Computed example of a mutant assay.
Amino acid sequence: MSGIDLGNGVVGAILGVVFATLFQQWTQDTWFRIRRRSAGMVRSLTFREGQRGAWSTFSLGPLRTSALIVEGDGDRAIAPESVHVQVLTEAVALPEEMDDWRAEIEAEENRAEASGDRAPVWNGPRYAVESLEVSRSALDEQAEVHLRLRPTDYYTFLAAQQLDRRMPDGTSPRSRYLDPEEPLNAPAFLQCSFGVNIAVVTSDHLLAVSQRSNRVRMAPGAWNSSVNEGLARHIDSAGRNAPDLHAVARRGMREEMSLEPHEYSLALLAFVLDVDKRHWGAHFYARLNDMTGDQLQERMGRGVADRWEHRTIDYVPFRSADVTRYLLRPDRVHRWAPLAPALFHLALVHVHGRASVERAEAQAVRRLQG
């Protein structure tokens, strides 16, 4: 090797060391930023794709519902002390156009009362849902549910149910205020309904399924949960206390089935939203301790407070295959109240386990399609 080559080699080595010293960190930082940006783009795409799937409503083969299970999978009950309910003092206020709709409803009910043509609809005090937020406890990751309510009334609820009625500018409440990609975000005046839905199973393993009366205002004639009870401000908020959802469920069991708390166990399984009508619900499972289906029928035959709400009650063996076949019966599959099928599925999971239930449901759907 000549002296020149040796000199060039030494200079090159020195320059390489200098370059590495000066630019190594910059190169690493740049490469890190590129990788992070690329990963972020992938995560963003994955999140958007996953989000569309995450907000799927409950379905079972040909049975499609508008019930979105917001919290709870049926496997583990939500503890009463994990549900925190807050009532805000300010009542919901309708936009001006929708407030005119409420005035129409009130005027029509006043005319009905004055003429005696029909019984007027009572403008009962209700609650609107401001928000429902879910977190996890630090130690055991139990659900912590925070439900915020506002005062409202039944006429406001009826006005808010006209989600597809056109306003003067051509929009509707649904198109103006609701985003299908963000189903949990909605103004409180469009969410003037919160109720409890209970799947009642007798001691001899029969699920009670009710059919709503044709005289009720919402979903007349639809097949529904065993018990359905809406929150009522004048009943469920003693003094200044916020309503207790378990207490509301017990009131529903008493008024619709003449059952007292010592006669059953009660488990809160989920919080569910009807994304079409903006109805919120808490789903419960109730197991009767000693009362059979025949005994329950006899008990109800001696009188119930809210008999007019139910047209009839069916009793279905509380096995996954039997309940699934019942849900998918040709004379039932398109006649369900939106939140009921998800309730029965969650109750099955709570008792029989997810794997067993989903296997039986898949078999029933395959037989139906084959």
Rank of each mutant, 00 (worst) to 15 (best):
M1C: 11
V11D: 02
G12T: 00
L15C: 09
V18T: 06
A20Y: 06
F23I: 08
D29M: 07
I34E: 13
G50K: 12
G53P: 00
T65G: 10
A67P: 07
A77N: 04
I78W: 01
A103H: 10
E106K: 09
N110T: 05
A114D: 12
S115C: 14
G116V: 10
D117G: 14
A119Y: 10
S131H: 00
E133S: 15
L139D: 13
D140T: 15
A143Q: 05
P151R: 14
Y154S: 04
R165D: 04
D169K: 00
P180R: 08
E182D: 11
F189E: 00
F189A: 00
L190E: 02
F194V: 08
V196A: 02
N197C: 03
V209Q: 04
S210F: 04
A219C: 09
N228H: 04
I235K: 13
V248A: 03
P261R: 08
S265N: 12
L266Y: 11
L269M: 07
D276W: 02
D306Y: 03
R307S: 14
H310S: 13
R311C: 15
I313H: 09
I313N: 07
Y315C: 13
A321T: 15
L327Y: 06
L327F: 05
P330D: 15
A340K: 00
P341A: 05
H345V: 02
L348C: 12
H352V: 06
S356L: 10
S356Y: 03
S356K: 08
V357S: 04
V357W: 02
Q369D: 05
